[in-house]
Design a protein around this nucleic acid. Sequence first.
DNA 1: ATAAATCCTACTATTTTAATAGGATTTCTT
DNA 2: AAGAAATCCTATTAAAATAGTAGGATTTAT
Lengths: 150, 150
Amino acid sequence: MKLSTKGQYGVRAMFDLAQHFGQGPVSLKMVAERQDISEHYLEQIIAGLRKAGLVNSIRGAQGGYILSKEPSAITVGDIIRVLEGPVAPVDCVNEELTERCARADQCITKMIWAKVRDSIEQVIDGITLADMVKEAEKMRFAEGNYMYHI
Amino acid sequence: MKLSTKGQYGVRAMFDLAQHFGQGPVSLKMVAERQDISEHYLEQIIAGLRKAGLVNSIRGAQGGYILSKEPSAITVGDIIRVLEGPVAPVDCVNEELTERCARADQCITKMIWAKVRDSIEQVIDGITLADMVKEAEKMRFAEGNYMYHI
DNA sequence: ATAAATCCTACTATTTTAATAGGATTTCTT
DNA sequence: AAGAAATCCTATTAAAATAGTAGGATTTAT
């Protein structure tokens, strides 16, 4: 029941882009540094996100990446589906597979995995990059207050 | 975001035992046949469940496995945790790891994975083997009705 | 005695994961 | 025009996890 680093890194990278949305293109080098991720590996990850249309790229010096939509229009689910494939704990509840589970009629467990899938989707489709940025600002504020009072 | 076959098979095997609860020990051979799982592989899986105290075994001819508790006292979550480890999409929300995420203070994504984890747990800890057996009986009834009307 | 079962350790092929390597191309800046 | 800073692209690889297999030792009902 694990998310690979690809999904984790992807969400963190997109979050980073969201935090700098409206400030022009952000280079991978900066993202990789701030998020402590291998730049080369991040390249592959963001390539997927670009092909899926979640980010736009600008080549050449002073180039970089920009979210293709407003942070409020991109959810964590969008990112995870691109990098990890459809959310389905097991294949027989994968809605993209047309062939049915061979033993579907007796597959009572199928209902369970469907419920797990639905609950995961409800969470990740309900959180946008804008939500994350907002939350991070709240945290930073709380931190600042704390420091001040020491 | 996948569950390995170990977890899937384990739940199906336990479900099988639940369906025959009260009828004496059930051999792996029967479970493997009915659930269409390699008997040898199932052996390894059930060994984990036995060591965790979820099933009791009876050796020798006419032996087999019996749930250690009533089906209503065993949840899907119990089974999955034994076979797949703690439910945590990423390590920094794994409550069993005492060491904290190195960049926890800026780890806004941590909150997301925690929410995902919680929603998964709410589902799998809320379903008992007894629920599954009941549901399967309902399905069988519906199926029978359907056949009758053809 | 035999057969049916659990128990146990080790091995292995395949796939996935998580990168690394090495360059080709594009574009801004000077 | 040169150089630097970036994206883009393909291939390779080491390590781990996955999904089993193999082969027997032990226990117990019949």
